[in-house]
């Protein structure tokens, strides 16, 4: 394991937030509704989105979808 030693900036809250926004927007761009996206985020099976959901909360996820042009999101 000693080989794994690259110096990297410590993860910040903003890194996670941006990753969360990216998840939401990629689904939204495919035409997913807010309801469908929320079901993915709430489900622990989807580890990445669920981690964002747990740490940043439901309001963050819903808000990420509403910002900007997110097709399908408003269709609810």
């Amino acid at each position: 394991m000693a080989l794994v030693a690259a110096v990297l900036p410590a993860p910040t809250d903003e890194d996670l937030a941006e990753m969360g926004r990216c998840y939401v927007e990629e689904f939204a761009r495919m035409g997913w509704s807010e309801d469908a996206v929320m079901r993915v985020f709430c489900n622990p099976f989807y580890r990445g989105p669920h981690a964002v959901y747990r740490r940043k909360g439901e309001q963050f996820v819903r808000g990420a979808g509403r910002s900007g042009d997110r097709r399908g999101w408003e269709r609810g």
């Binding site: 990297l8 900036p9 890194d15 941006e18 990753m19 990216c22």
Partner: peptide, 9 residues
Amino acid sequence: PPRWVPRPY
């Protein structure tokens, strides 16, 4: 490029 990754990297 991936949006969430630190810019210097």
